[in-house]
Design a protein around this nucleic acid. Structure first.
Length: 965
RNA sequence: GCGGAUAUGGCGUAAUCGGUAGCCGCGCCAGACUUAGGAUCUGGUUCCGAGAGGAGUGGGGGUUCGAGUCCCCCUAUCCGCACCA
C-alpha cells in the first residue's frame, strides 16, 4: 500500500474538525498546561515557511503534553488591527475590515493544511468588538488607577482624591509626570477642571503633552520600539520629535517590578538582557547644585533645593564629584532662560532653536558631532565650593534623569569629547593605582571604568571607587543636597495613534467652557463601563481630515450623549449633554497585551475572563514566538498583566513562564552569473575565474534544484533569457547562493502550501524541525526535504507487515523492545528540551533499525505511532486507525520507557594504572570486580603496564577501573 | 562603544555526565534492478596518504589520565542597545 499523504491528511483534518478533537474545557481532574503562540498579523502576503516554524514546535509540545495526560490549552487568533490594512484602505478605498477578513481566511486555510491542534473555538480577533471591549475596559481601569510607590501597586484614583481632600500631597509617594506640592485647602478650593488636570498627573493611563515620535508619512505617532535609527519600523519613513497631546501608559511606574520579575521566569539570558537594557535601571545619586548668581558663594545659599536658585542633576558616579569642571543642561531645560547672561543670550537662543528643530534622524546620525554653547552662568560645586561654568548641549537628553548633568571629562567619554572640543579643563579624580596621577591633557580617551582609587578627591582620596561612591552619597545626604536614587531608561508608552484601524478610546471630552477636544478646559471622561464596547465608527475616508485631525474626524456619528449613553451624530454636540469623542485610536500593542488571558475564557461577555478560568489556567506555561518582540509586546504584556494582577484580575504577576524564541528563517537565494562581455552567456559558478567579469543575477529558487539550474525552465523564465547560452561544468550549471531576507524581489520566498501539496504536511512539519534547533536562525533550504519524505515512506512501509499478515500477532523480540524503549527515552528527552531536530534524526535511526529487524510486532509499532503523533499527526492517526483503534491517536497515552530495556550490554571503562589512564576497556554491563580484574589482565594493552599481580584494584561499575601496581 | 550569542566534514547538523568526534539527513562516489531514471535498494564518503599511519571541533594557552564540552586570552560572524550621565 502506498503512502498517499494528500488523501490521508485531508481525511484526518476533516475528521478532527468534525469530532472536535482539539476542543478544550476549563477544569477537570487532569493537570493543566497552556501552550501559546504569538498570534500573527494577517498580512496580505499570506504565510511563508518562516511563520509555521514556531507553530509547529509549539504544536509538537502541546500534543506531547496532551498525550502525557495534561489538559492542554493551545489556542490561536489574529492580531488583526494594524497599519498595512489601513494603508491598503487609503489606496483602494477597501474597508480594512474586509481586507482583514479576507487575509484571515487565507491564513486559516494555510494553517489548517499543516494540521495544527489549535482549539479554534477559542479564536480571538483583536478587531472584534466583543474582544476589544476588554482592551477598552483595561484602558479605563488604568485611567481609574494610579501607582502608589509605598504600596508598590496600582490603587484606585478615588483613594487618591480622598487623600488630596484630607492632606494634599503630604507624604504622597506616587508615580507621576511632574512632582506636585499642594495642600488639602488648595485642592478643595480648585474647581473640577483643575482637579481633573491634577489627577491626570497620576493616572496610569494619562493624557499629556509629550515629545512624541511623529511620522508625517504615516500621519501618526509611534512608540519607541516602533522607531529604529530615526525611521519607522513599518515603511521606513522619517520620524521627528514633536510635542503633542497624547494618551500614554505609565509603564515606567512598573520599571522595577519589570526588572525584578525577570528573575522568576524561564527565558533565555539574552532575552532577559535585552529587556534589562531596555528598562535600563541605573543606580546613582541626585544632587542639587546651587547657582552662583551675582557672585554668590555656597554660604550665601539658604535653600539648597530651591528650584529657583539650584538645579538637580543625576549621576551614576557620585565619587567623581571632585572632578566636575563644567555642568551641562539639555536644550529644553527650563532654567536656561533664567540663567543665561545678556552677553550669551543671542548665542544660547540660537543654539536652543537649532537643537529643537533637528529631526530625530539628524540627531542620531550626528551623535559623534559635538555641539554646545556656554550660558555665561556658573554653578557651585557643593563639595569643593568651586564655581563651574554651565553649558547647554544636546548630548544631554531632556527625557532622562533631570535633563542636567555634572560633567566629569576625565571619567566620562562624552564629557571628555565635549571638554576637548571646547577646551575645557579636565581633572583626574580616579586612578587605577593608588596615588598615581597622570596629566589628563595627554590622554587620548577618558577613564570610564568603575575601578581603581580616588585621587585629588578631598575626604574620599585613597578610597576604592565603590567605597568613594557610598561615602560621597552619605555626605551629600547629610548635607541635605541630594540622595541615592535609581533612574530608568524605560519611558512611558505612548498610547495614541492617529489612525482609523485600531481600538477607539472610550473617552469623551466633557466640556466646561467651549466645544474643543484636547483643550485645557475640557475634561476627558470615560464612557460608563457598561456601555462598552465603544465600536469603531464608519468613516467616509481613511485619511486624516483636511484640518489634520485623525481619520475618526471623518466619522459622522462620533459624539457621546450622556443622557442616553449612546453614540450620536457629531452635529448633536451641544456641550451640555452631548460631547465629542476621542479621535485617536489605540496602538497595535493594545490588543496583543492581554490576548493570552482572553483565550482562557473567550466568550465571556460579563468579564474580560472569569475568576474560575484564570484560576484554573493561571498563566501561559510555554510561549513561543520571535525575539523581535523583546522590547515591545513582551514588555507591554508583562506590564498589562502586572496591572491586572494589582487590580485582582490575573492571579500571577508574570504571564509567560517559559519563553522559546524561534529563530528567523531567512531565504536562501540562488544566483546565475552573466558574463559582462557577452550578455547571453552564463557561466557556471565553478568556472568563474574572476567575479569581476560576471554579474550575479537572482534566479527563482523554484527552477533550481540543489544549486543545479534547470536550463530549460530558466530560458522560459523570462524573455530576455530565452536565448541564453551556458558554460557548464560536467554538463550542469551550478548556481551560487547566499542567505538573505525572504523576499519576493529576491525570488527566494517559499510558500508552505506548495510544499504541503508536493510532500504533505507531515513532511513539512518534520522537515522544518529537522532543519536545525528551533531557536537558531537558519536559511530555508529545501535540499534536504526529500530525505525526510523518504523517511516517512519508510515509516509507513514498516507497518505493512504488521497490518497485512498474521505476522502482526508475533510477539516482539527483545532486540525490538530495546529499540522501542531507547526511542521512547530519546524522544521524550528531546521534546522536553525542545530539541526537535534530534527527535527527527532519532525517528530515522529507529525506523532503519526496525526495518533491519523486519519488525512486525504490534506491541512495538503501536507505541511508535503514538511517539510520532506530535510530529506527524496525520500519518500517526491513519496508522493508529489501521491498527484497529476507533478513537483518535490524540487520546492515546504517551508510552512509558521500561528501564530494563535500556540496560547496555557493554560499558566502556577507562583503565588507570597508578592513577594514570592507559586505555579503554569494554566490559559486559553486569561485570563484577572479579570480571574486571580478569579482563584487565587479559587485555593486550595491559602487558605494557601490568607486571605481576596488581596491589589493589578499584572497580567502580559504569565508571572506572583503577589499578595500583 | 556597551551587552548577549555563535564558531564542528562539501552543506544542515549530532555528541544530554569531561570518556573511541562527526549520529541522522543532504550532496557526492560505486554498485544492483532497469529500455530509461530526477524511482527504488545496497555499500562508501572528515582531511592528508597508495598504504602503514598521521592530523583534526575558528586561533593561542591552561586544568585533567582524558576537553567539541571546563577556565583564561584572541579572532570572526550574527543579534540587541546606543549621547541614558
Amino acid at each position: 500500500m502506498d503512502y498517499n499523504y494528500n488523501e490521508i491528511e485531508q481525511k484526518w483534518q476533516e475528521w478532527w474538525r468534525k469530532e472536535g478533537v482539539y476542543k478544550v474545557e476549563n477544569g477537570g481532574d487532569k493537570p493543566h498546561f497552556y501552550v501559546l503562540d504569538m498570534f500573527p498579523y494577517p498580512s496580505g502576503a499570506g504565510l511563508h515557511v518562516g511563520h509555521p516554524l514556531g507553530y509547529i514546535a509549539s504544536d509538537i509540545y502541546s500534543r506531547y503534553k496532551r498525550l502525557q495526560g495534561f489538559n492542554v490549552l493551545h489556542p490561536m487568533g489574529y492580531d488583526a488591527y494594524g497599519l498595512p490594512a489601513e494603508q491598503y484602505a487609503i489606496q483602494t478605498g477597501q474597508h480594512p475590515a474586509i481586507t482583514t477578513e479576507k487575509n484571515i481566511s487565507r491564513y486559516r486555510e494555510q494553517l489548517d493544511k499543516i494540521g495544527f491542534s489549535f482549539d479554534w473555538s477559542r479564536e480571538v480577533r483583536t478587531c472584534e468588538p466583543k474582544y476589544y471591549k476588554w482592551t477598552q475596559w483595561t484602558f479605563l481601569q488604568m485611567f481609574k488607577h494610579y501607582y502608589d510607590n509605598g504600596a508598590n501597586k496600582a490603587l484606585p484614583i478615588a483613594s487618591l482624591v480622598e487623600r488630596f481632600a484630607k492632606q494634599g500631597t503630604k507624604d504622597l509617594d506616587a508615580a507621576c509626570t511632574e512632582v506636585l506640592d499642594f495642600s488639602a485647602e488648595e485642592w478643595n478650593s480648585w474647581d473640577e477642571a483643575k482637579q481633573q488636570q491634577v489627577l491626570m498627573n497620576y493616572r496610569l493611563a494619562y493624557l499629556a503633552d509629550i515629545p512624541v515620535n511623529w511620522c508625517a508619512e504615516l500621519g501618526t505617532v509611534l512608540a519607541n520600539d516602533e522607531v529604529v535609527n530615526g525611521l519607522s519600523v513599518r515603511g521606513g519613513y522619517p520620524v521627528e520629535r514633536k510635542l503633542m497631546r497624547q494618551w500614554s501608559l505609565r509603564v515606567s511606574a512598573y520599571a522595577q517590578r519589570l526588572v525584578d520579575g525577570l528573575e522568576q521566569i524561564d527565558w533565555t539570558d539574552s532575552l532577559k538582557e535585552i529587556q534589562r537594557n531596555w528598562i535600563g535601571r541605573s543606580e546613582g545619586a541626585a544632587v542639587w547644585f546651587p547657582l552662583a548668581n551675582d557672585g554668590k558663594d555656597l554660604k550665601d545659599v539658604k535653600d539648597l533645593k530651591d528650584p529657583k536658585t539650584s538645579f538637580e542633576i543625576f549621576t551614576t558616579r557620585p565619587d567623581t564629584i571632585f572632578g566636575v569642571t563644567f555642568m551641562v543642561l539639555c536644550p529644553e531645560h527650563e532654567l536656561i532662560d533664567q540663567i543665561t547672561t545678556p552677553e550669551q543670550k543671542a548665542e544660547v537662543e540660537a543654539y536652543v532653536t537649532w537643537a529643537k528643530n533637528r529631526s530625530e534622524r539628524e540627531r542620531q546620525a550626528e551623535v559623534k558631532k559635538v555641539s554646545g554653547v556656554f550660558t555665561g552662568a556658573y554653578a557651585i560645586n557643593p563639595l569643593t565650593e568651586e564655581k563651574i561654568p554651565i553649558w547647554v548641549s544636546d548630548y544631554v537628553l531632556a527625557g532622562y534623569g533631570t535633563g542636567a548633568i555634572m560633567a566629569v571629562p576625565a571619567h566620562d567619554s562624552r564629557d571628555f569629547a565635549f571638554a576637548r572640543h571646547f577646551n575645557l579643563p579636565i581633572r583626574q579624580v580616579v586612578s587605577l593605582e593608588k596615588d598615581v596621577v597622570s596629566d589628563p591633557s595627554t590622554w587620548e580617551e577618558s577613564m570610564d571604568a568603575k575601578t581603581g582609587y580616588s585621587v585629588n578627591s578631598g575626604f574620599v582620596t585613597g578610597m576604592k571607587v565603590k567605597e568613594a561612591m557610598a561615602a560621597v552619597i552619605d555626605h551629600i545626604e547629610k548635607m541635605g543636597i541630594g540622595h541615592r536614587t535609581v533612574n530608568y531608561r524605560l519611558r512611558d508608552a505612548i498610547f495614541s495613534r492617529q489612525r482609523y484601524w485600531g481600538e477607539p478610546f472610550p473617552i469623551y471630552y466633557r466640556n466646561v467652557e467651549c466645544g474643543m477636544r484636547n483643550e485645557e478646559f475640557s475634561i476627558p471622561t470615560p464612557i460608563p463601563e457598561e456601555c462598552l464596547p465603544l465600536e469603531l465608527p464608519e468613516v467616509s475616508e481613511f485619511k486624516p481630515t483636511a484640518t489634520g485631525e485623525p481619520p475618526l474626524g471623518h466619522a459622522k456619528k462620533w459624539a457621546w450623549d450622556t443622557k442616553t449613553n449612546t453614540v450620536v451624530d457629531v452635529s448633536d454636540i451641544d456641550n451640555k449633554t452631548v460631547f465629542p469623542l476621542e479621535l485617536s485610536t489605540m496602538p497595535g500593542f493594545a490588543g496583543s497585551s492581554g490576548y493570552y488571558l482572553r483565550y482562557m475564557d473567550p466568550h465571556n461577555d460579563e468579564a474580560y475572563f472569569s475568576k474560575d478560568a484564570v484560576g484554573y489556567w493561571q498563566k501561559v506555561d510555554l510561549y513561543v514566538g520571535g525575539a523581535e518582540h523583546a522590547s515591545g509586546h513582551l514588555i507591554y504584556a508583562r506590564f498589562w498583566n502586572k496591572f491586572l494582577h494589582d487590580i485582582g484580575m490575573s492571579v500571577v504577576e508574570e504571564p509567560f513562564q517559559k519563553l522559546i524564541n524561534q529563530g528567523m528563517i531567512q531565504g536562501r537565494s540562488n544566483f546565475v552569473y552573466r558574463s559582462k562581455t557577452d550578455n547571453t552567456l552564463f557561466i557556471s559558478k565553478g568556472l568563474i575565474k574572476n567575479m569581476d567579469d560576471v554579474t550575479p543575477i537572482h534566479v527563482d529558487i523554484n527552477i533550481v534544484d540543489n544549486d543545479v539550474l534547470d536550463i530549460e525552465k530558466f530560458r522560459q523564465w523570462r524573455p530576455e533569457f530565452s536565448d541564453a547560452r551556458f558554460e557548464l561544468e560536467e554538463g550542469k550549471y551550478i548556481c551560487g547562493w547566499e542567505v538573505e531576507k525572504m523576499s519576493k524581489s529576491m525570488y527566494n520566498v517559499q510558500n508552505p502550501d506548495d510544499l504541503v501539496a508536493r510532500y504533505g504536511a507531515d513532511t513539512l512539519r518534520l522537515y522544518e524541525m529537522f532543519l536545525g534547533p528551533v531557536e537558531q536562525a537558519k536559511p530555508w533550504d529545501t535540499n534536504g526535504i526529500e530525505g525526510v519524505h523518504r523517511f516517512l515512506k519508510k515509516f509507513w512501509k514498516l507497518y505493512d507487515n504488521c497490518l497485512t499478515a498474521q505476522a502482526g500477532q508475533a510477539g516482539p523480540t527483545k532486540e525490538e523492545l530495546k529499540v522501542l524503549h531507547h526511542t521512547i527515552k530519546k524522544i521524550t528527552d528531546d521534546i522536553e528540551r525542545f530539541s526537535f531536530n534530534t527527535s527527527v534524526s532519532n525517528f530515522m535511526i529507529t525506523t532503519n533499525q526496525l526495518t533491519d529487524l523486519k519488525c512486525s510486532s504490534r506491541e512495538v509499532l503501536e507505541p511508535m505511532a503514538v511517539l510520532i503523533a506530535p510530529f506527524a499527526p496525520h500519518i500517526a492517526e491513519e496508522l493508529w486507525h489501521q491498527l484497529g483503534h476507533a478513537d483518535s491517536v490524540c487520546d492515546a497515552q504517551w508510552p512509558v520507557c521500561d528501564p530494563q530495556f535500556l540496560v547496555e550490554d557493554t560499558v566502556k571503562y577507562p583503565v588507570q594504572f597508578n592513577g594514570k589512564m592507559r586505555f579503554m576497556l569494554e566490559l559486559p554491563a553486569d561485570s563484577t570486580q572479579e570480571d574486571a580484574v580478569k579482563a584487565v589482565k587479559e587485555a593486550p594493552e595491559s602487558a605494557k603496564w601490568l607486571t605481576g599481580e596488581p596491589k589493589k584494584v578499584i572497580f567502580v561499575p559504569k565508571k572506572i577501573i583503577n589499578i595500583v601496581c
